[in-house]
Amino acid sequence: MKAKRKKATADKSLCVACGSCAKACPRKAIEIFKGIYAAVREERCVGCGICARICPASVITIIVREAENG
C-alpha cells in the first residue's frame, strides 16, 4: 500500500543559503550545501513546515509524495 508523506523541498535557484531553515529544523534534516543552497535530507524530513514558514525568501515548499511501506 502506498502512503502519502509530506516533504520539504527548496528551490536551489532562489535560495540565499542563510541557514534559517537548518537552524529551525527540529529533525536536523536540512544542511546548507557548500554555502550555496539548502539541501533537504528527505529520510529525516517529516514535512512539518517549520522551515517553509521561517524561510525569509519563501523558497521552501511542502510537497506530498507517495511513499512505499506506509
Binding site: V16, A17, C18, S20, K34, G35, I36, I54, C55, P56, A57, S58
Partner: peptide
C-alpha cells in the same frame, strides 16, 4: 513588513559570501 530574517535575502555580505562559495565550489 515580511519575515523576521528578510534582511538575509538582500544582505550584501550574504550575497557576496554565497557568490564566493559558488565560485570556490564550482569545480568540486
Amino acid at each position: 513588513l515580511y519575515k523576521p530574517r528578510s534582511w538575509c535575502v538582500y544582505c550584501p555580505m550574504g550575497t557576496m559570501t554565497q557568490a564566493i562559495c559558488a565560485l570556490k565550489n564550482k569545480n568540486k
